[in-house]
């Protein structure tokens, strides 16, 4: 019978706070008549969030780096619970995307958002599994053993390197459920091309 030796202690606290300060500059707080949530800066003037955090044609404000911007929603993908917002004055670092096919159960993941009104909160957990579409085999949801609350919706789920794993969307049976980064990228590309055409 093989035996695996125990690990030396880790100093991960400083790493996690570095992750939090990086995410603080790229995660926005969304205020809308339906409550709001978190959003992710997706390039110059674009913010991605959950569709359930915003309402079409309703006034919206977002707060980032202590500044308040007024924005409007430009595209929805209700099957994925995603919304794209245009906010010309918003800029910030853009997260690298993590390929869902490389995700491994047990990896550390971090959720950043504003759970229960607590602004800019970080939660840590482990990747639970990737739920795939039975027909196409495409990643449909990312399940994570992580504590989420209302206010995390629309915010990022990132890996230990700060790459975007998905957009936090739901809590199912205690597990956090996120929309895979690849699906979000697909949605944004389609929405932007549609407007350009």
């Amino acid at each position: 019978m093989t035996t695996v030796p125990a690990v030396p202690p880790y100093g991960i606290g400083s790493d996690a706070s570095r992750l939090a300060s990086m995410l603080r500059r790229t995660v926005v707080e969304i205020r809308s008549p339906v409550g709001g949530g978190a959003g992710i800066i997706w390039g110059r003037g674009l913010v991605v969030t959950n569709a359930h955090c915003v309402r079409r044609d309703a006034p919206l404000t977002i707060e980032v780096n202590g500044e308040t911007h007024s924005v409007k929603s430009v595209a929805f993908a209700c099957d994925h619970d995603l919304a794209l917002l245009r906010a010309p004055s918003v800029a910030g670092p853009v997260l690298e995307l993590r390929d869902p096919d490389t995700l491994r159960p047990g990896e550390l993941v971090f959720a950043y958002g504003h759970p229960l009104g607590v602004s800019h909160a970080l939660a840590m957990g482990a990747l639970h599994g990737v739920v795939r579409d039975e027909r196409t085999g495409d990643p449909r949801y990312i399940a994570a053993d992580i504590r989420l609350a209302p206010g995390n919706s629309g915010g990022p789920l990132v890996d230990a390197d700060g790459k975007l794993v998905g957009v936090n969307s739901m809590i199912v049976g205690g597990l956090g459920v996120a929309i895979p980064a690849s699906a979000v990228q697909g949605f944004v590309t389609r929405a932007v091309n549609l407007r350009a055409a």
């Binding site: 880790y10 996690a16 390197d161």
Partner: peptide, 19 residues
């Protein structure tokens, strides 16, 4: 994130967990 420091213990721990 990984590029600005050579020893990211978080990433190390994470890959150890998934392994």
């Amino acid at each position: 994130m990984a590029s600005d420091n050579d020893t990211n213990t978080l990433a190390e721990l994470s890959s150890q967990l998934s392994a």
